[in-house]
Design a protein around this nucleic acid. Structure first.
Lengths: 195, 195, 195, 195
DNA sequence: AATGAATGAGAATTCATTCAT
DNA sequence: CATGAATGAATTCTCATTCAT
């Protein structure tokens, strides 16, 4: 077993997780590297062995966490979609709904995501992404309701962005409406957009 | 003429404007007070005569600039709406369209607004806001298409948030789509949502 | 009295003096700013009010100290030269001799000067230097022994550099010869060069 | 063939050369060990197998490079001296002239040598040096022009130091005069000193 | 012998804020 | 009211050196 590379990956992850929790609760600008390494249980120098600087760390966290969320949501959608034989519209609605739920339960990640939402979309759209296939099938689902490939792509992006943004606001500030207050309305709007 | 109070207001505005430009281009965290006061042409101590601290300044800028934008957009909508005798849906679409255009032309303000979009809505919804009446009429317009007051309020919020968010991404990063690419799609979606 | 500018000059000088002593005894690279400010009795931030960074400080010290030394030497030469009605060659020899003595007594300054000797010459040659006139008269003295202006300039430079360099080595390391061992030899060589 | 000891010597030399180039271009204080070992193609730990610390490395480089230069210069002088049957003065002048030329062509080595010129002399004077004999013959040459052994030693030292110092300044900063501008003057002075 | 991950003391520098003038 | 010199805690990042593999 490649214990050496494995240990490195583990250490990197420890830093990533420690930073995530801190950044999420106090914001990146309010979290000194000192605290991150202390929480991660590594030396200060070790941090700079794995990340060029604080900004690279931030980027990595966003990537890391977004990936986690998208991966989880897609897995659930796929499973439930198959089990319940959902049609195109229903699957997309389910995807958006799950995204909202998951984000609502991941308050901290929203703090980081806020204002960088296109990152999530980039994850889906990137040629080399592990999600490429799924993203493709989402677009195909939307084409089944009569959109061109381009329209489908754009609309998917706008809807994702829209729901994420509303979620961020709703979850983070709860003002003027909470997620739960907004959720039925969002669903109604999504349905309207998809028919 | 109250030259004393007037001069104070002027100096305060000079600081606000200087900070706005700096914050917009480099971000608040990357802009030291030193630079702000230098650009504003006042002494460092003077700054603290007008603002409690850097955070109050930031808040004030967002308020200041959002107000400017909303005020401008609403004025244009009102004028054109009257001139062209637009119906409810058309007025709302015009409002959203103008918001997009104005934001697209105010790249810097988006930097600040990004992730704080509900601020704009708060402006509209606040009891004491100068926009209260207009916001009220927007809601009433939406009720004309068959929504309850509550639904109308929420939908207005969601649509605003959605469009602002998409604009921020599109204008600021241009990725994955530019505003101009997205604008027709957005309009189509808005229309669908309002019928 | 302009107490404000005066106080600033004083504080700057305090830093300069503190740094000089520290740099001279341990070398600039071995002296943290922390120690400098502590010795100067000012806050760390104050340091950066007066000097861009450690390197500017170093340059300033060299300038400051070289100026002090040259000023002192020239004053002595002028005085003694007049009193004893010395001729050209004798005055130059006296100048070099005094330079050697003064440097020998200013061990610390040599630490800083070592390897940056042309600084001293620059001081003499700089158009705006307070020493311009004196430097000019040194050159004129050398022209009296039959050199062209250009030859005189170069020879003055070479001799200065040569003597400073030998002094640095001799004073700082005492190896292979001490200043006192070398001084007669140097004098003999200077005399030879000037006739 | 002693491949073991040979390989070690080779690795040591690789480090020495890598460090030399780096130190020469950016200065020792600005060159981290990291860069040295990377350039040398060895691991960081390996460095400490061959050198106690960074300071020992620096010393070794200066020694290494000075030796190279002196060895080269002396070889050339010896060869040309024999071929052209030069007399004492001419040989010394040739030696100094070659030193200047070689240094002018070895800009980087001067960076390191600057302020440590007596090292070169130490090389010549050290009892166990490979140059002991040559240095001795240089002294003897000077005694041929009527100096005592002691005077000869000192004068050789002063002249060496003087020329090296002037070279460092001239080559490194080119200010106030370049090597080429100074060279005739230096030669003239050397000639004067040797007669 | 060689490696390179890990260390952590330390260094430079910044900057929001205060306060005497 | 206005000023800007002074502060020093806080922060980021570096790097020589060690040591387990």
């Amino acid at each position: 077993m490649a214990t050496v590379a494995e240990k490195k990956r583990l250490k990197r992850n420890k830093i990533l997780e420690a930073a995530y929790e801190l950044f999420a609760s106090k914001g990146m600008h309010m979290t000194p590297i000192d605290e991150v390494v202390k929480k991660a249980g590594v030396a200060k120098g070790t941090f700079y062995l794995y990340f060029r600087d604080k900004y690279e760390l931030t980027d990595q966290i966003i990537l890391h966490k977004s990936t986690q969320i998208v991966r989880q949501v897609l897995a659930e959608v796929r499973e439930q979609g198959e089990k319940e034989c959902l049609d195109a519209v229903e699957q997309i609605l389910l995807f958006l709904d799950k995204m909202i739920s998951t984000m609502a339960q991941n308050r901290p990640v929203l703090t980081l995501l806020s204002g960088k939402i296109s990152t999530v979309y980039d994850l889906l759209a990137d040629e080399n992404s592990e999600f490429r296939d799924t993203a493709q099938s989402l677009v195909e689902l939307m084409m089944q309701i009569g959109l061109t490939a381009e329209q489908a792509g754009k609309q998917l992006y706008v809807m994702l962005n829209m729901f994420c943004s509303v979620c961020c606001d709703a979850v983070l500030s709860g003002s003027p409406y909470s997620v739960d207050e907004l959720r039925p309305e969002i669903r109604r709007m999504a349905q309207k957009l998809l028919t």
